[in-house]
Design a protein around this nucleic acid. Structure first.
Lengths: 230, 230
DNA sequence: CTAACTTTGCGTAAAAATTACACATATAAT
DNA sequence: ATTATATGTGTAATTTTTACGCAAAGTTAG
């Protein structure tokens, strides 16, 4: 990372990436935020992100900043929009390429390096820096639309999960309620769930069946051309 | 637009916008391209676009470049992705914020200033400059997904159109075939079409009924929360 | 000019998908 | 010990989607 002086014939905006990190557990959908220690917006919370280097593309940058600032490596990172309002950063003209990441919260609890990083449930977001409130709204919209076509929810759940957990996830993201029985039959009919045999003999129904996601059968379905609807 | 010298502590990529312009007529879906007169990619075709100014956001820039290079003012312009591969422009690191525009081809035929601008049907695209072939593929995907949720097709048709025209449009964009009768009843059931009385007495059915899009009833439906599915 | 063909609108029966619930059972709560 | 709760399974009613027939008038071919 050379520091020095770079001169151009025309002015150029800074280019950054930001990453909205979604996690899910029994408390519902949350995002991981970082508290800003300096002005501007000192004390506000913000998404991890930073300047794009000359030798990396946007997604690479988003993954790097994500790891540097939170210690997390996310499997699933996707760009959902670029924000370029002229006055979005008081320090100077900055364009940010926004991404969202999906992480299995169960596998990373407390694994965030940054002491000032914290999970906030979607319904209880603190004041955000810059235009990050707008970015969050757009991220949520993008996630909601995405889940209608791809089973992104499985990126947010543990390897092994139950049908009620899966339903909770869909209901949290889409902010709707499904009939329990209809949801289960629809999900099972898709054929992308494997029943997991965890040894325990299932007597009664109070302890739910464990499932895992089957990426192979999903790829097959996708190849044939189908749509996942909810 | 000051020309001069602008110096920064860290290197910055150039930021441009590009605009994929979609049009539709009896020949199907096409895009408007500009032939490059200079290297690199001299003789290849490209989307209109150019450098973002410091006092405009991305969409404003896309609309400005669109008008400067083709003379067109588009009603509908939407960002669909940002392309940031390190080597996408041989002249230097450049990030482009890509948009697509929908225009009523019927109203602008031949109205493009740029002599070297030409419409190309989607099925017959010439060699494109830079990574514009990839950008086109992503644009098409974005348009296809969008049309499932919003009646963007009406931006591409004349004010007054017929049911077969509307069906052709959907079939061109989605690359599928619908049953004529089912398509019409589904469309009419949406309640966003006004029958246009053009004076002529409709004897027989060979001359089709004329319709226009009703934005008011569409807004109402949208407010109530619905989804347009095809 | 006439006959065959095509385009459009309207309508309907069959198939498929969605919706709304009932019941049984073992665990959890009181 | 009794009651309430969470889960799995199934099914009937409703709605939506699909497939296709028919009639009227313009278009085309000879």
């Amino acid at each position: 990372m050379n520091k020095g002086s770079y001169t151009y014939e025309y002015p150029r905006p800074s280019v950054t990436t930001d990453c909205v990190i979604f996690g899910f557990d029994s408390d519902g959908l949350s995002v991981l935020l970082i508290e800003r220690g300096i002005e501007p917006f000192k004390g506000c919370w913000a998404f991890p992100g930073g300047f794009m280097q000359m030798d990396e593309d946007a997604e690479t940058c988003a993954r790097r900043e994500l790891e540097e600032e939170t210690g997390l490596k996310a499997d699933y990172v996707e760009q959902f929009g670029t924000f370029s309002d002229v006055n979005r950063d008081p320090r100077g003209r900055t364009v940010t390429i926004a991404h969202y990441a999906l992480v299995k919260k169960s596998e990373v609890k407390g694994a965030d390096d940054a002491a000032q990083a914290r999970w906030f449930p979607i319904g209880n977001i603190p004041p955000l820096a810059f235009d990050h409130d707008r970015i969050l709204r757009v991220a949520l919209k993008a996630l909601r639309e995405k889940i209608h076509f791809e089973p992104v929810g499985f990126e947010l759940l543990p390897q092994v999960f139950t049908m009620p957990q899966l339903q909770d996830l869909y209901e949290s993201i889409l902010e709707v309620k499904f009939d329990r029985r209809n949801f289960a039959s629809k999900m099972l009919k898709l054929g992308i769930l494997n029943e997991v045999d965890d040894g325990t003999v299932r007597k009664g129904t109070r302890n739910p069946i464990k499932y895992s996601f089957n990426p192979e059968s999903y790829s097959q379905m996708k190849a044939k051309g189908f749509r996942l609807e909810f």
